[in-house]
């Protein structure tokens, strides 16, 4: 019985992936019609280059949402890390090898603290991460109010270097997504994230270390934010405390579009990946046809609602 239910769920998920994939193709075709520069290598290269930041924060959000939580501290964390990286590297451009691991460790640590707070205090993750976001943002602003700092050329290169016409950042992103997908599907720990998000009590009764899984998911989200911040700093060359403000919400959209609904326990990284592609492509297309970024907000909101509407009616 449950096997059949699983099967139906799986098929539905596949169907929603298919819908998103079809939408992607339609967008590409529409883009090709609307502008003869849209489907050029140059623009596709640009698109691919932009993927990594949104891709990484959305991946982090996916881990947390799968486990049944939400991470609203992602944006502030990314902002704080870009400030750290740019200022550190301005001070000691030769210490890139030290700055990057430090940033990743700090990011993972902040994520783990988010997880620990929800576990220990038993407070809703929305409140914990919202509070955490405010703390991080305030702390960053106390240190630097305006964008500043600089990065050495060699570091900036990681955002722009291409191999065979494809940006390294896009390759990194695909590899990380593939590893994440394999980890979630094929390993015990990875699968336990789904269980914790599905029915937490059942997971606990089955002897899963639910609390540890929660902390792990948030730590992974922090790590992903760290990777996003590294590429973002490399691309922009400055540390901007406010750069992440919009990123938190943006990280949610692909997760919703990809069908990893906020109830947790369903979905996966493939859906998120398709969601990231869809959002990035749509924004690029809207830029091409000169739709102001104001309307892009409206459209982003509508996308969330439509995606949620589709997925929630499928659930019934």
């Amino acid at each position: 019985m449950s096997a059949i239910a699983m099967d139906i769920r799986r098929n539905r998920l596949m169907l929603s992936y298919l819908i998103v994939a079809v939408l992607l193709v339609l967008l590409a075709v529409a883009g090709g019609f609307l502008s003869d520069r849209f489907l050029t290598w140059r623009n596709i290269g640009n698109l691919l280059q932009q993927l990594i930041v949104l891709g990484m924060v959305s991946l982090g959000q996916t881990f947390v949402v799968l486990m049944g939580g939400i991470d609203l501290a992602i944006g502030s964390l990314v902002g704080a890390l870009t400030v750290f990286l740019a200022n550190f590297l301005e001070w000691r451009p030769d210490l890139v090898w030290l700055a990057l691991p430090l940033a990743l460790i700090a990011a993972t640590g902040v994520g783990a603290i988010n997880g620990l707070l929800t576990v220990v205090l038993r407070v809703h993750p929305l409140i914990v991460t919202l509070g955490m976001s405010s703390i991080i943002f305030g702390g960053t602003l106390m240190y630097r109010k305006e964008p500043g700092g600089s990065v050495p050329r060699a570091f900036a290169d990681i955002a722009y270097t291409k191999v065979g016409g494809i940006p390294i950042s896009a390759i990194v992103l695909v590899v990380i997504f593939a590893l994440a997908g394999l980890w979630l599907q094929r390993t015990r720990t990875g699968r336990s994230i789904y269980f914790a998000g599905g029915d937490r009590e059942a997971a606990r009764l089955n002897g899963l270390p639910v609390d540890r899984i929660v902390v792990l998911a948030y730590a992974l989200s922090g790590l992903c934010a760290g990777i996003a911040a590294i590429f973002l700093t490399a691309r922009t060359g400055v540390g901007d405390p406010r750069i992440g403000v919009a990123l938190t919400l943006q990280s949610v959209t692909p997760v919703v579009v990809g069908g990893t609904i906020l109830a947790g326990g369903r979905g996966g990284v493939l859906g998120t990946f398709l969601g990231v592609l869809l959002v990035t492509m749509l924004n690029s297309l809207l830029n091409f046809v000169n739709v102001s970024s104001y309307y892009q907000w409206v459209i982003q909101g509508l996308i969330i609602l439509i995606a949620v509407g589709i997925h929630s009616s499928r659930r019934k």
């Binding site: 919202l130 509070g131 955490m132 976001s133 405010s134 703390i135 991080i136 943002f137 305030g138 702390g139 602003l141 106390m142 109010k145």
Partner: peptide
């Protein structure tokens, strides 16, 4: 900015 931290 400390207001933000305290609020959090």
């Amino acid at each position: 900015e400390m207001q933000l931290i305290i609020k959090g």
